[in-house]
Design a protein around this nucleic acid. Structure first.
Length: 460
RNA sequence: GGCGGGUUAGCCAAGUGGUAAGGCGGGAGUCUGCAAAACUCCUAACGUCGGUUCGAUUCCGACACCCGCCUCCA
C-alpha cells in the first residue's frame, strides 16, 4: 500500500506524492514555538508527532528538508519583556535554548533550518508590500496593515468556513473597528506604547509583523512558494493556517501547501490542561517526578496523532512498563546464544510499514512489534538469528526513536557486593545475603537472580 | 449558532460488512532459599434506538453523552 496522509485540506486520506519530480525530496514545515515560556507537554505532543512523521519519511527513503520557525516576537513575549525588564533577545534566547533542550530529552530530531521571525522581517515587509500593491492588503486608520479576506476568493477552504458564519459567532475585539471585515487580520502591527523598545521600521511606520505572515515568509523562503507538508496543532487550522494560505497564495498565485497535517490536542486526566486546574505540566515537571524523556516520548507518541490523547500518570506508568518489556527482550537478545535459528519473519517489517503507511498508525505498528516480542520470547535464537533481529529492531527504531537498551555499567564496589552475596547464597547463609541485598538497595541497585547468575540493575 | 472529532474490556488504544490487534492492570503457573525481575497462559469490550443487509461493532439515520475550533493557543 502506498503511503497515505489525512489532508486537512480535503478531509480525506490521500496518497503522498512529493512535488519533486524524482519523488525524493520532501519539504516539511512545522509550526515552531512561541518562546515566552517553557513548552508544556501539549506543545510537545505536536513536536513528537512531527518527529514521527519526519523519521518515517526518512525511513521510507525521502530526503526531507525540515524547517521550523521560532516565533520570537509576539504579544506574550512583549509582555514578558516588559515585566521582566530583560531584552527581547534575552528572553527569547533563553526559552529557545530550553525548548531545544526539551526536544533533545525527547529524542526529537532537530529541524534542518530554524529561522527566527525577527531575522526575517525584511522578507516579511517585501511580501506585505506585494500584497498592498495588489490590493490584497490595505493600511487602516490605525496605521496597521490588514489582509482583506474578501480579496481572496478561496478564503475558508482549509477550515471549511464561509465568511457569513465567521461573523455571526466570533467575538470580535473592540479595538478592531478599523478593519474592513472582522476577520481581516494584521500583516503589520503599528507600534504602540506597550511595545516599548520592540519595533522595526517599515514603509508604514515603526511596528512589528503579524503572526501569520511569519510562517508564510519563513516557509516559502526555505522551501519554495509551493511545498509538500505543513504541520501544526489542530487549533492552528483557523485562523493561523487559513490566513497563511490566503496571504501566500494571494501573493504568489500558486498553491501554498499540498498536504496539511494537524495533530489533535492532549487532555490531562480528561480535561483541558490549564494552570488553574493544576494539571499543567512541562517536561521538566515530569523529569522532576522521576520520569524519563523516553517514557514521556512513548506516552506522547503511542496514540494516533489525530486522536485526542488523554495524558495521565497511569498512562506514563504503562509507557514505562511497555518500554521495560521491549528492553528486556532486546537485552536478552544481546546476551543470547541459543540452539535453534529463529530468523526474522519478514512479515514484521512489512506489517510495521503497512501500519505506518496508513496515516502513521503507530498503534498498529507497535502492536506488530509487541506481537513479535511475544512470539520471540517463546522461541530461541541462534547468535546469528539474534543479531538479525537486533539489526531489524535498530532499523525500526529509526522511526520510533526509543533507543536501544544498554546494560547498566556496574561499579566495582557494587559488583563486589553482588559476588559476596552470591557466595553467601551458595553457602546458604541467607541472612547475610539478604543483608547485602538491603545494602545494595540503599545504593540504588537491585539484584536479579537469573539462572545464569546474579544480575545487578540500577533502580529507576 | 457554524464547522469538526469522539463513544471498543478495569485503564489506554488499533481495526474490520461475517462476533475484534496490542499495551497496562488483574489472576494462575514456571523460575527462586525467599523475593524481585523475566517469561508463559488466562481474563474481559464494540454508547442507545431504528434502517439497509443473509449477516453491522463496521454502512445510513436519529438520540444521548464527551471533546475541540470559531478569540492568543500544539
Amino acid at each position: 500500500m502506498a503511503l497515505q496522509f489525512f489532508n486537512t485540506l480535503t478531509r480525506r486520506k490521500e496518497d503522498f506524492v512529493p512535488l519533486d519530480p524524482e519523488g525524493k525530496k520532501v519539504g516539511l514545515y512545522t509550526c515552531g514555538p512561541t518562546v515566552y515560556n517553557y513548552a508544556h507537554i501539549g506543545n510537545l505532543r505536536a513536536f513528537t508527532f512531527e518527529d514521527l512523521l519526519r523519521r518515517y519519511l526518512e525511513y521510507k527513503g525521502f530526503q526531507v528538508k525540515h524547517v521550523m520557525n521560532i516565533t520570537d516576537v509576539e504579544d506574550k513575549i512583549i509582555r514578558t519583556v516588559r515585566e521582566s525588564g530583560k531584552s527581547l533577545r534575552e528572553v527569547t534566547d533563553f526559552y529557545t535554548q530550553e525548548f531545544f533542550r526539551d526536544l533533545d530529552t525527547l529524542n526529537i530530531q532537530r529541524p534542518h533550518v530554524v529561522p527566527r521571525a525577527t531575522e526575517t522581517i525584511a522578507d516579511m515587509i517585501k511580501l506585505i508590500e506585494t500584497l498592498v500593491a495588489s490590493k490584497h492588503a490595505y493600511v487602516a486608520e490605525d496605521r496597521c496593515v490588514y489582509f482583506s479576506i474578501k480579496s481572496f476568493k478561496d478564503y475558508g477552504k482549509l477550515a471549511h468556513l464561509d465568511l457569513e458564519n465567521l461573523q455571526s459567532g466570533a467575538r470580535v475585539a473592540q479595538d478592531e473597528y478599523d478593519k474592513e471585515h472582522a476577520a481581516d487580520f494584521a500583516l503589520w502591527k503599528a507600534w504602540d506604547e506597550d511595545d516599548g523598545t520592540v519595533k522595526w521600521p517599515s514603509p508604514w511606520g515603526d511596528g512589528r509583523p503579524g503572526w501569520h505572515i511569519e510562517c508564510s515568509v519563513m516557509s516559502m523562503k526555505h522551501l519554495g512558494e509551493t511545498f509538500d507538508i505543513h504541520c501544526g496543532g489542530e487549533d492552528l487550522i483557523f485562523p493561523h493556517h487559513e490566513d497563511e494560505i490566503a496571504q501566500s497564495e494571494a501573493a504568489t498565485g500558486k498553491p501554498f501547501v499540498r498536504y496539511w497535517l494537524h495533530n489533535a490536542h492532549l487532555l490531562v486526566d480528561g480535561k483541558k490542561m490549564s494552570k488553574s486546574l493544576g494539571n499543567f505540566y512541562t517536561l521538566r515537571d515530569l523529569l522532576a517526578k522521576g520520569w524519563t524523556g523516553r517514557e514521556v516520548r512513548y506516552a506522547l507518541i503511542s496514540a494516533h496523532y489525530r486522536e485526542q490523547l488523554n495524558f495521565t500518570f497511569d498512562g506514563l506508568q504503562a509507557a514505562r512498563s511497555a518500554l521495560q518489556r521491549i528492553d528486556e527482550f532486546l537485552l536478552k537478545l544481546q546476551e543470547l546464544a541459543g540452539a535453534a535459528t529463529h530468523g526474522v519473519p519478514k512479515a514484521v517489517v512489512s506489517e510495521f510499514e503497512a501500519a505506518l503507511d496508513d496515516d502513521l498508525n503507530i498503534s498498529g505498528a507497535l502492536g506488530v512489534l509487541f506481537e513479535f516480542v511475544r512470539v520471540g520470547n517463546k522461541g530461541t535464537f541462534s547468535p546469528a538469528g539474534a543479531a538479525d533481529v537486533l539489526a531489524m529492531w535498530k532499523k525500526l527504531d529509526m522511526v520510533l526513536g526509543f533507543g536501544m537498551p544498554t546494560k547498566s555499567e556496574v561499579p566495582a564496589g557494587v559488583q563486589q557486593l553482588v559476588e559476596e552475596r552470591q557466595a553467601a547464597r551458595k553457602a546458604k547463609n541467607f541472612k547475610r545475603s539478604d543483608e547485602i541485598r538491603d545494602q545494595l538497595a540503599k545504593q540504588g541497585w537491585v539484584v536479579d537472580d537469573t539462572p545464569k547468575g546474579p544480575r545487578a540493575k540500577r533502580i529507576g
